[in-house]
Computed example of a mutant assay.
Amino acid sequence: MQFIDTHCHLDFDEFKGDFQNLVYRANRLGIQGFVVPGVTLKQSLTLLDFKQHNPGVYIAFGLHPYFMAEHREHDFEQLKSLAIEHRKQLVAIGECGIDASIADLEKQQTLFVGHIKLANELSLPLIVHHRQSHHLIMQAFKQVQPKWGGVIHAFSGSLQQAQAYIKLGFKLGVGGTITYERANKTKQALAQVPLDSLVLETDAPSMPLAGYQGQINLPERLKAVFDCLVAIRNESEPEIAKQVYASSCSLFKI
């Protein structure tokens, strides 16, 4: 079985010094590709070199809402210029979105709409972050409809919300959330949506799985996420593996 971790931050400081072993352990479990999103202007720039020196890494440019306090007035315009210049190096625009735990929701909304327009211009999918903001995400999608879909990162929500995203051409990012017993609503939704609407992710080094709370999350734990997905789906393990891999390749044109 082959897998792609469609969302992990392998360039973060937590992985410096052990990066090759990290990738080796993941590869041994069939995890052959890693999509690494951008979070700030400066970090997005460094991803170009990171990709060049690490086979199997695919990158995206974006301004993450979590870092709103760091984003400066002209950062998005610079990011846009860089994305246009390096279009062939990118598989998506993001990580972008709206986070209700962070201040300046109006500014977040404006920035997110800018990302949607940029993705449309470059014919790229979006990597969308949400936190208590499904309604705000959908408002942005009504303002500017995304033309190339994307992935709703770390999806947690109802079947109705899942179906609304799928209708707009989005995949749902299946991550560590489904390893927790309390995530019944999300697991029920992911059990019922079409299999081809799902992709796997870890968000490493963040979002530790159940049993690993307080520890750095690792790409190799994608296999544990996959096992939990198999447990809630009706399809066979090989069928699920084949489809989520195909969906990941198709979405990001890998």
Score class of each variant (00 low, 15 high):
201 E>M: 03
201 E>I: 02
233 R>I: 05
232 I>L: 14
211 G>K: 02
210 A>Y: 04
201 E>C: 00
202 T>C: 05
210 A>M: 12
229 L>D: 11
221 R>W: 08
230 V>A: 15
217 N>S: 14
219 P>V: 03
203 D>F: 11
227 D>I: 00
218 L>K: 14
209 L>I: 12
205 P>M: 13
230 V>Y: 00
223 K>S: 10
223 K>F: 05
215 Q>F: 03
206 S>H: 13
227 D>Q: 06
213 Q>H: 09
214 G>Q: 08
214 G>M: 09
219 P>D: 02
221 R>S: 06
216 I>T: 15
231 A>I: 13
216 I>V: 15
207 M>N: 13
233 R>Q: 11
227 D>K: 05
207 M>F: 09
203 D>G: 11
228 C>E: 09
209 L>P: 00
219 P>I: 06
218 L>C: 14
210 A>N: 12
223 K>W: 00
227 D>F: 04
205 P>Y: 12
229 L>F: 03
213 Q>G: 09
205 P>S: 14
225 V>S: 04
202 T>W: 08
233 R>W: 12
219 P>M: 08
226 F>H: 04
209 L>F: 00
221 R>E: 04
222 L>N: 04
219 P>A: 05
233 R>G: 08
206 S>D: 15
211 G>Y: 03
231 A>C: 09
217 N>V: 08
229 L>K: 05
225 V>T: 04
221 R>L: 05
